[in-house]
Design a protein around this nucleic acid. Structure first.
Length: 435
RNA sequence: GGAGGGAUGACAGAGCGGACGAAUGUACCGGUCUUGAAAACCGGCGUGGGCUUGCCCACCGUGGGUUCAAAUCCCACUCCCUCCGCCA
């Protein structure tokens, strides 16, 4: 949620910044109007309530003096004012609800360095990385044997069974098998182990309450993108960001404990409602995938470092897996609702000949903390909202695809990167020969 | 799923219609004392909101209700604990 106080203080700045994200000035003017009206009604209601309380006190006093007539008189007057107060309070709440509903739909104020743009085509590429780049080698040339899509490799080697997944849960629910399943498990294990020293490992629930979804900004805006379990009032989480951000919801944290850094691998569920038919083959876009998330609650001063650390870790994993990738700075048109700044990492997957998004590192400033009401105690004894930062490291379905395609050998087998050997053991080569 | 007990400030724990935003203890912060520390003593110590910055309002699990007045009475719900049942 944006800062209403800031909107009051510097309306022109906030309006201009949000206009970059397509929020009309008139929408913000409406919010300002509701805010003014709300405070007017609030004052009126509170004035009446103070008077009722005062009269009630006097009724008590009169009773004690056994002044029954006086007490009844005061009671009657208080009852009248009480009715007025009830009306005023109802009116106040109606306006407060309208204001809140509007406010929940307003995205975060973008950071000044977020480039202008309409959609993903306007994202700005910051850099690329590939094996040997530091030694001056050119961008890799991939051989014919690497130009095979992972869904074909999956069938060939019996490690990915898209049809079996579809049979069980419908299309876009992949099923991995044999060495393919083991590879997926190894990737998660590998990543969690590498973060373990600095990030507390969490295994959260896979479902969340509506309130939890509100905190991250996934609701009310993105309800159509998520799976709902209506009977139980639950939503399937689209990312571990959801439970991690709400871990300390409504709490006041010790500043000395910050930054609080956590990591979690979870299944991530996405309906992909608006993406029917787009890039849906194989693992390019699926309804369920495993992902390791990195997350930090921090003070405003710490948030730049927290962001840099998460980005560096995501890149570090890609580098140790030997995968080619690029870093994009998201433009205003592609930025997620809650984010003030996001960098995406895209891995190059030669078989499908595409860049695949495998990580999104975002800085939310206090937007999510305001929704989730997560604060910390400042040195002067007052409270302030924390900042939240998170990023994937990494989303495994697409990494799986990139690995299988990148490391396919001329004989059709796959020679896995050596960092996985602690987890893959004697299965470092996947292929007809090994199986 | 059934039966009973509970939910109050950082924690423990009183209050069970009228001056209660809430006793008391611990913890914490400041001060006195001390060579220093401890102890003792003194003072402070929840969160949010509004505006005329001194006041007002809200919050005692959540939501309703009764009343001139609710932490306190009534109803519903949620969560926790104990016992029984079921279960990976």
């Amino acid at each position: 949620m944006i800062d209403l106080a800031q909107l009051r203080r510097e309306p022109e700045f906030v309006k201009a910044a949000l206009a970059r994200r397509g929020i009309a000035n008139s929408t913000m003017d409406e919010i300002t109007l509701l805010d003014v009206e709300h405070r007017r009604l609030l004052q009126e209601a509170e004035r009446l309530r103070a008077e009722v309380k005062d009269l009630s006190r006097k009724v008590g006093e009169a009773r004690r003096r056994t002044d029954i007539v006086g007490a009844d008189k005061l009671s009657a007057r208080s009852r009248e004012l009480g009715d007025l107060e009830r009306e005023a309070t109802q009116a106040t709440e109606a306006v407060a609800t309208a204001l809140r509903d509007q406010l929940l739909m307003i995205p975060n104020v973008p950071a000044p360095d977020v480039p202008e743009g309409r959609d993903e085509n306007d994202n700005v590429e910051m850099r690329r990385w590939w094996v040997g780049m530091d030694e001056g080698l050119p961008f890799p040339e991939y051989g014919e044997h690497q130009r095979v899509a992972h869904w074909d490799i999956g069938i060939e080697l019996g490690i990915l069974d898209i049809e079996a997944g579809a049979k069980l849960a419908g299309s876009m629910f992949p099923l991995y098998r044999g060495a393919g399943a083991r590879l997926l498990r190894s990737l998660g294990f590998f990543a969690l182990n590498s973060h373990m020293a600095d990030y507390e490992e969490i295994r959260p629930p896979s479902f969340a309450l509506t309130e939890t979804m509100m905190s991250t900004g996934h609701l009310p805006k993105s309800a159509d993108d998520m799976y709902a379990i209506e009977r139980d009032g639950l939503w399937a989480i689209p990312t571990a960001e959801v439970p991690l951000t709400s871990m300390h919801r409504g709490e006041i944290l010790e500043e000395s404990k910050l930054p609080i850094r956590m990591t979690a691998q979870t299944a991530c569920f996405r309906r992909e409602a608006g993406a029917a038919g787009r890039d849906t083959r194989g693992l390019l876009r699926v309804h369920e995938f495993d992902k390791v998330e990195l997350f930090a609650y921090c003070t405003p001063d710490q948030s730049d470092d927290a962001f840099a650390d998460i980005l560096a870790r995501a890149e570090g994993l890609l580098q140790s897996l030997g995968l080619t990738y690029r870093v994009l700075r998201l433009c205003t048109g592609d930025l997620g609702t809650s984010s003030a700044r996001t960098f995406d990492l895209e891995v190059f997957s030669p078989g499908v000949d595409r860049w695949l998004e495998v990580s999104s590192v975002s800085w939310f400033r206090d937007y999510q903390a305001r929704r989730a009401n997560v604060r910390y105690r400042t040195p002067d004894g007052s409270t302030a909202l924390v900042h939240t930062v998170n990023g994937s490291a990494l989303a495994w379905a697409r990494i799986w695809a990139a690995i299988v395609e990148t490391y396919r050998q001329p004989d059709g087998s796959i020679a896995l990167p050596s960092v996985l050997s602690p987890y893959m053991g004697d299965s470092m080569t996947i292929g007809p020969k090994a199986s």
